[in-house]
Design a protein around this nucleic acid. Sequence first.
RNA 1: GCGCGCAUAGCUCAGUUGGUUAGAGCGUCACAUUGACAUUGUGAAGGUCCGUGGUUCGAGUCCACGUGCGCGCACCA
Length: 884
Amino acid sequence: MANEMAKAYEAKLVEDGIYESWLSSGFFTPENLPNVTDSTEAFTVVMPPPNVTGVLHLGHALENSLMDAMVRYQRLLGKKALLIPGTDHAALPTQAKVEKLLMADGIKNPRQELGREKLVEKIREFAEQSKSTILSQVKKMGTSADWSRLAYTFDEKRNVAVNELFTRMYNDGLIYRGFRVVNWSVKGQSTSSDDEIETIERASVLYTFKYSKDFPIAISTTRPETKVGDTAVAVHPADDRYTAFIGKTFNVDFAGSKLTIKVIASEEVDPSFGTGALGVTPAHSPIDFGMYEVQKAKQDPIEIIQVIGLDGKMTVEAGQLVAGQTVEKARATVVAWLSGQGLLEDSKDIIQNVGTSDRYGDVIESVPMTQWWLNVNKEIPGRGKTLKDLMRDAVTTGLNGDASQKVSITPERFTKLYLDRVNNLRDWCLSRQIWWGHRIPAWYRGEEIAVGARPEGDGWVQDEDTLDTWFSSGSWTFSTLGWPEKTSDLKNFHPTNWIQMGYEILYLWLMRMILMSSYALNQVPFNNAYMHGLLRDKDGNKFSKSSGNNIDPIEVINEYGCDALRISVLSGNTPGNDSRYYTEKVEAARNLVNKLWNISRFIIGNVGGARHVDVPSNSPINGGETSLTLADRWILARFSETAKKVSSLIDRYDFSLAIEMLRDFTWNDFADWYLEIAKIEGEKGDVLLYILERLLILWHPFAPFVTEEIYKNFNSGMIIVAKWPTVEYELSSEDRSAFDQVCSAVIAIRNYLSEHKTLPKDVESIVMVNAGVLSGMESIIGGLTKVKAIRSGEERPESITPIVVGSAQIFVQLPAVDAASEKARIESGIAEATKFIAAQESKLANADFVARAPEKVIAGERQKLADLQEKLAALQKEHAALVS
RNA sequence: GCGCGCAUAGCUCAGUUGGUUAGAGCGUCACAUUGACAUUGUGAAGGUCCGUGGUUCGAGUCCACGUGCGCGCACCA
């Protein structure tokens, strides 16, 4: 195998082949892993299913890097590691996309022209086709998912789960059909839940007017066009200005409508806003609808008039002046009418927050409709808890106070956000007026309603609506494992152990998964949730099609390799925080991967091929006398420290720091120090191979491809199922300090030469006086500094100013020395040492410090002072010699 | 209005429970290099850790207030 490795790592040439070999190994399926038994601990992660019609973007690259690193790490630990892949039918965006394509093909109104069955079939075809695109791209990321368990939010099995869940919730009285104001997107022609609304600021005008000349109260609104639907005016019950009118009813002629306005009292009215009186439009405002319901409960009802239609135009009920007009047009019409009548008292510009559809972008209209809802405040029969309670318990005490049924969110601050939201949660509107999705399993015949399977008998018609896509996503952790069947998968792999997702879907998804799983299984969906931030471009902007800054991860992979992309998106990325993507980072990661490749190439080429080394043959672990050198002992211990550190960092989900530790060890300790020493000391096959093999394993979760490729040289099977290294070596404090001194000496000599602008080859000789631990290290120090003529001795050469390292004085004989610059060098050294000694002394002179600080800290400070004093003394001696 | 986050080198960011002279990568500058690697090596420069006050023997780290930026929620009549 020696010398067969290419000069540089060419990711492009090997990645696809390696992925194929993983697939054919079967190791993505946990049951196929070596040495697993029924009792082997499982580690399960479900993949947040990418949108079936989407293409891979950098966000996916981050997600796949995160979850695959975690799963590969767990697999290397010997667990039954399972990553369940899947795709999302993404109801609304998918239908919208296909409709758009059809319209481009000349089908102007796809829903009308094709009808339900044909359109759904078109969407299904399209979805199936593009599903394979996104899946192949996920594979390009190296994701080690169990494709034999591939799921789809809209396949038959998931449909069974969704229907079962809906039916159970209906039978428990949690799902109900109710008439109330919903969030309506005119553009999308569908309802949306509160969580799918994004509020934006926009300029608006606040108009103040009276309905008619003889109406006693002026009101303020930004939506005058809706006032044709007003049926009441609400005032604060304690507002003296208006209390006299409460309970009275007025008939007014307003903008072409005859309105009956009742004055009602409501605590919700803010007397200080506008005129302190609120025109109540029950049909087109959730708050006003609330008042409508309160009045109804008080048996003092007010009317409800729908004046905006589902098409966003004013209805016939709005009166002939505005009927048929768009909302915007009607607004202008009503304002014009008001000023014409002299009713307009004031209009002022304000900045207003309005809700928009996060999918369609249009302003959400509130309209009254009968829809399906999930009640989050009702006690679940037999459980004594509401869904809200379950959602709360899951992140605090654990379900039923069971700590093993608790979700820990990383970073923790999101827990508070989650709890705040849970406390303010309102009933969830489940039904959507689109066709691409799980159809609501409700059947109607006249006044009869049946939920679940289609009832026996004729005349039953299924509900036209489909379910909110998050209803099926919410059951993802257990629907993928076979629920509602009592499968062994559910038993073995649920609750899942860990999940990662972007914080932007904390409410939409994480919350729903907790709700669904807690309800259906009395289990949390996962024990740990890792929230990652947004990946932004180098200037901190969001990636988006419209701003043209999109980056295709596949192109990045083709240019730099998948491992480089994975490392670059994970490094510098901390939980919950956004991070930036830029090319230099990928280049740096590519260089790192190549460095690892070249280290391996050098080692394998130099020791006559790779082989597994259980324990270095000259290691003390073998029992016998050790022939390990100081450098060997140091690097073995450093490796053990690194392995330990990396493990605990991944256990803490600190992928970024884990990579940094690995990089530091690989590049600095192993390549720059130890490999250079190994060239000098020679005969390092065992130690080098021992470390290399294990180092590749440590890198594998982050750089799966290059490590698998190099590992082939070891003929030890595949690295994907290798064994995570255990900690074996420790460094004695004597060794540690000795090696530190060797390094310090090397660095000091290099510095000295650099300061004197002298090349190592021009140095005549180096003599180390009072060498201490440095004696015996001459060849290493000489090799690393590239100065051949180096020795230890007791006789100090004449007229040279030495470098001081610890107690040793190192005399570097240069061809020519400028006495003045030498003096300056020594003096600056003295000045620096003096400064720090003063600082140390004052610290130690502080009685409070000595009295209160821990002994360990004080001892450290004393040692520091002693070292500095020793150094200063040596420098002063040299200085005296120089000036004499 | 309520709440959360962030502010550390030119840039992007680390910095665990308070304890060396505050770190990394990239960038910059100087030098080196025919032997694993120019996808390299060696060295250097570069920081009032946003401000003010406090707690402490000791604060980048904890507390309070302030400033700037970002975000969530509510109001949005």
